[in-house]
Design a protein around this nucleic acid. Sequence first.
RNA 1: GCGGGAUG
Length: 233
Amino acid sequence: VIVGTALIRMYGVCGCLKEAEILFDRVSDKDIILWNCMIALYVEHKKSSQALVFFHQMLGEGVLPNKVTCSSLLNAYGSENELAMGKKMHACCVGSNYELDMVVETALIYMYGKCGCLEAAHLLFDRMHVRDLVAWTTMISLYAQQEHHCKALQLFSQLQQESLMPDIVTVVGMISACASEEALFICKQVHACVMVTKLASDTVLGNAFISAFNKCGSLKEALTCFEQMTKRD
RNA sequence: GCGGGAUG
């Protein structure tokens, strides 16, 4: 089963879900890890309904879900805007004390945020006992994607006051949804922050800034950014 | 051997 799971996951991450499923069907004693693996693969590939089919098959075979199962399903509900289902899952997580797991907490924040409940998401974020960079980035990206750039920027500077360093995901999450003249200010602020860090020399990030400045209607800033890059591709 | 964040 262990080798099988590793193999199945390998096929899955390469996008070969059919091959993965053929192998999956041939495993006789499917354990929770194998089921979780299968569910997570289908969620990753945006095939949430198929992931749910596996989930129900799993329950039908008497295998109980754990917090790994829950975090995968929360992701599915988030990307499908299934708020009602997400709330049910939230209740399950509370009942099982999974809500104290940082991964589950972050998945809950993602689910609520994606379903348009930014307030609920932020409330959960505030109630977390420990917030790592992924939790911060999740919250920031949710705000940014829903055009609350000021809220995102506010969190972005708060994060740094907590002596955490934003990484590429955080920064791209901040700027990738910037596409208006109002958001130009945001890009400038973030760019200034980034230029005094290690990320300043990152080519991928430089390209992301050029694209963002352009979308905000400032070819001038885009060019300045290009000129400041130490490496270009 | 399985789970949480951005873009491509």
